[in-house]
């Protein structure tokens, strides 16, 4: 059976590439420390020696649109082109190409459907910065096949937080039941408090530092019960109008498991939003 060698949850900040590669007067004062933190985070994946990556993210109105919006979708294709014109334009992200792992995609779809998740699928999916950002930060050589898993955190009506957690638990079990000897890392990205297109956007910190502090504590301690007791679709409007992306962190808590403390935790308070990085090693301890 496959071995889940790392579970990773991260924010996906689209400005990391531009900040980390800027030089001279263009280099922001926070870039050096950000690079240091990202490189330390990257080592937590490298040391797990994965063969394949399950990548959980969310399309930001790029390919998926309101005339046919899936709640949860799994890519099943031999390749995935990546990043879109408006991400090049706004963030300076490059066009990228990923290799897919169709066999694991097919396994997740079949077993997910049988477990009660009516998963959509795509045989031609162009993926966006919710998945390319963690590749840039965690696996910049982009040398591993991926299985993209998209969630709808963006276009209401949304699934409730409990459903994200349930899907995370199912993904963990289904990957572990995959009759293959591969070493699999499951990586998901979301947001802490975040405001986009509203009055609280682009402040000196994230819009709700107190929510961020509590969210990091929930994730780091694996406190799914406490998190689910407080987080609802309605409550997520309060910390910032794009904070529903936190449900992808909740999905990853479901992957990691109830009560499972993260083996690696780091944060970085930036303007606009807080960065947060978590790694769990299911076999316990750092490799």
């Amino acid at each position: 059976m496959a071995d889940v060698v790392a579970v990773i949850a991260s924010t996906h900040h689209p400005f990391y590439l531009r900040a980390s590669t800027a030089t001279g007067d263009d280099r922001p004062p926070f870039a050096d420390e950000w690079v240091r933190k990202v490189e330390a985070f990257r080592r937590t994946l490298t040391e797990a020696r994965p063969d394949v990556l399950v990548m959980v993210g969310s399309d930001h109105f790029h390919q998926l649109w309101l005339d046919n919006m899936p709640q949860f979708l799994i890519g099943k294709a031999p390749f995935y082109d990546a990043n879109f014109y408006n991400e090049e334009r706004e963030f300076g992200l490059p066009r990228m190409l990923f290799t897919g792992h169709e066999e694991l995609s097919a396994h997740l779809l079949r077993e997910g459907l049988d477990a009660g998740f009516d998963l959509a699928f795509s045989n031609e999916l162009r993926i966006d910065h919710s998945i390319t950002c963690p590749i840039i930060t965690l696996r910049p050589q982009n040398d591993l096949p991926i299985v993209p898993v998209y969630t709808n955190i963006f276009a209401p009506p949304l699934p409730r937080p409990e459903r994200f957690v349930q899907l995370g638990r199912a993904i963990r079990r289904i990957v572990e039941d995959w009759p293959d000897e591969s070493r699999v890392a499951i990586i998901g990205t979301g947001h802490l408090s975040l405001e986009l297109g509203g009055p609280r956007q682009f402040g000196p910190t994230g819009p709700d530092p107190e929510f961020d502090r509590r969210a990091v504590e929930w994730i780091a301690s694996g406190d799914l019960e406490g998190c689910l007791a407080e987080v609802t679709l309605d409550s997520l409007h309060l910390p910032g109008n794009a904070t529903h992306g936190f449900m992808d962190f909740m999905l990853m808590m479901g992957v990691a498991g109830e009560g499972r403390k993260a083996d690696y935790v780091d944060t970085y308070d930036l303007f606009h939003t807080m960065e947060a990085y978590f790694t769990w090693y299911p076999r316990g301890g750092r490799p």
């Binding site: 930001h60 109105f61 408006n86 706004e90 963006f154 276009a155 986009l196 297109g197 109008n241 794009a242």
Partner: peptide, 10 residues
């Protein structure tokens, strides 16, 4: 949708 408005106006 605030994300769509923001992205286009930026």
């Amino acid at each position: 949708h605030p994300f769509l408005t923001l992205t286009l106006f930026i």
